[in-house]
């Protein structure tokens, strides 16, 4: 692991130790967040899967009915019959905060009753088809909300995992390594100092002994 470039002195050592503690605390917090996000995520998946399967099955059923209606009424007539209807406010959206991820809460409102076409000229199967679609639409809306939440959670989980890994495998080891190297350099300087003092003391004693000898 790469050692950070810092001056090996006590001040830096203190600073580094403080940084290490902050990084460790941050790592723990992020890890907890990651675990919680994952729990939330996994709880949502199987429900969403089931819902999607149901929506797809219902849609293909409705498409089949529409195809029959198209065959009976003719393509252009059917297209004309389906022109009725204005885009309406079908859903109300709000936001919810799940572990700091803004997840949409979408609620299906009332779906307009299909109509506006001639009951005389249009086959009965069209009613059935539209009814099937109208029944599927609330499920589709719920599916949209769930899948969006899952996608947003997945993105946040990925980001959090990267951060956790960066702290765990890069930043913290490199700080620890740097602390060790600074500590060793300081120890080395300390030892150097000690031997120098001992040497000086020896020299002084020798000098004193020589002075005494010459005085005698």
């Amino acid at each position: 692991m790469s050692v950070l470039r810092v001056n090996p002195n006590r001040m830096e050592l203190l600073k580094l130790k403080r940084r290490r503690d902050v990084a460790k605390r941050g790592h723990k917090l992020l890890k907890d967040k990651f675990d919680e996000l994952l729990k939330e995520f996994l709880a949502r998946i199987s429900d969403s899967r089931r819902l999607r399967r149901e929506v797809e099955a219902r849609l293909s059923h409705a498409y089949a009915l529409l195809a029959v209606a198209r065959a009976e009424a003719g393509r252009t007539d059917l297209a004309q019959a389906l022109l009725a209807g204005e885009p309406a406010d079908l859903v109300t959206t709000a936001e919810r905060n799940v572990m700091s991820v803004r997840v949409p809460e979408i609620e299906a409102g009332e779906i307009p009753q299909p109509g506006g076409y001639s009951l005389g000229t249009m086959p009965a199967v069209l009613d059935e088809a539209l009814e099937a679609l109208a029944e599927t639409l609330p499920l589709m809306i719920e599916l949209a909300q769930r899948e969006k939440a899952i996608e947003l959670l997945a993105a946040e989980i990925e980001r959090t995992r990267r951060r956790v890994n960066a702290l765990e495998h890069v930043l913290i080891p490199s700080i620890v390594e740097t602390i060790k190297s600074v500590q060793m350099k300081l120890d080395e300087a300390e030892r150097g100092n000690l031997t120098r003092l001992m040497k000086v003391k020896d020299m002084l004693e020798q000098q004193r002994a020589e002075e005494q000898r010459s005085a005698e």
């Binding site: 409705a62 529409l66 059917l78 297209a79 389906l82 022109l83 009725a84 209807g85 204005e86 885009p87 309406a88 079908l90 779906i111 307009p112 299909p114 109509g115 506006g116 076409y117 088809a129 539209l130 679609l133 109208a134 639409l137």
Partner: peptide
């Protein structure tokens, strides 16, 4: 097309 009568854009 089938969604238009249901209020979908």
């Amino acid at each position: 097309a089938g969604f238009r009568p249901l209020g979908v854009a």
